[in-house]
Design a protein around this nucleic acid. Structure first.
Lengths: 193, 193
DNA sequence: TCTAAAATACTAACAGTGTTAGTTTTGGAA
DNA sequence: TTCCAAAACTAACACTGTTAGTATTTTAGA
């Protein structure tokens, strides 16, 4: 049959497009194959398994997220950088909910590549905290705290857990971030902006 | 054929047992039917769909979680109550990771029953903040903040996002909670223990 | 108590999923 | 031009949830 000229890259990219358009739930290898005008089995020439593809999409998503965050903090320092990073993180989750779902469904434990991908998520946050006089250990704790806040907020908002209460979502997020800034300069973590 | 005497309740409970034992991923209606010594189609006499069962398991999980939290804050007030609640929330997520996954995979938007279930998650947190002089609106914001922190921490830890950094997990959590306590008594939220 | 109705379990099948083995076609390099 | 490896194919398997239609068993009413 006429060769489609598929590549691993093309497979991943159209998969991303389909997931962003129709959602992760409605995505399947068969639909992907149909879109690429190929039989399902042919995908296995470019991808080892559905899991493999899933992981690859995760790498792609993490790269885009890191990009957005680095761009957001560019030229900023201190609280301004931290807030800019936080909002960039939040915005990515809101604007690419399906890609964000892919990221958080990655089992980061499995292999080394995933570990370094996890590092890519951390890097912009660490950089945003550059200006603070904190030990590396403190920064690592704080980075976990900020990610918890942002990730928890995003996923609960997406799941609808924050509905039905007639108070502004953005105010809640602002309050959470204010708490993080308090932590950044609180005595026990020994920071100065 | 000999009737098994199944009830909706029994179906849900063995489903919970199977999920806690083998994980949510390995769970299926066919396995459930086999465990109950029944053909798959027979389950539909007690359950409308896999989704329906999933929702019912969610109710069960939320009830157990609420229980644990109310027990934890019993007789406590102020910071002590808040910290006890937070640790109970965290502990539930650690000890029942699969049930916790069921809870967070519930689309809380869908129907009214799920909305009230979402209320069950909120109630213990609101009660833990009883002693603080806060407006209802402030408490609602703060409740969202605390849930974000705890949920975000739990899911990222479970996904392995916190590995590979040689700093204590519990210290990170403690720092996050310290930040929340700071927020509780910060001027802008106008609280006093 | 006997009968009608409702509940329960069944068989058989469908459409969907990912995946594999084995086969054919194709494009490019020797 | 031949030959080989890559890429596409067909056909099938095992699994998923789900439905329609059919027995059987229990329950409720006359």
């Amino acid at each position: 049959m006429p060769r489609q000229g598929l590549t691993r890259r093309a497979v991943v990219e159209t998969a991303v497009q389909m997931i962003e358009a129709n959602g992760l739930d409605r995505f399947s290898l068969r639909e992907l194959a149909r879109t690429l005008q190929v039989k399902p089995a042919s995908l296995y020439n470019h991808v080892n398994s559905a899991d493999d593809l899933h992981t690859e999409i995760g790498y792609y998503a993490i790269a885009r997220m890191k990009e957005a965050q680095l761009a957001a903090i560019d030229g900023k320092t201190g609280d301004e950088a931290v807030l800019a990073l936080a909002m960039a993180y939040y915005r990515f989750g809101k604007e690419h909910p399906e890609l964000y779902r892919v990221i958080l469904s990655l089992p980061m434990i499995r292999n080394d590549a995933l570990q370094t991908a996890a590092g890519d998520i951390v890097e912009p946050i660490m950089r945003a905290m550059d200006a603070y006089e904190l030990t590396l250990e403190q920064k690592m704790h704080l980075q976990r705290v900020l990610r918890s806040i942002l990730h928890g907020f995003l996923t609960q908002e997406a799941a609808g857990c924050f509905r039905h209460f007639p108070v502004e979502l953005s105010d809640s997020l602002q309050m959470a971030l204010r708490g993080f800034l308090l932590l950044l300069r609180s005595p026990e973590s020994g920071a100065r902006a």
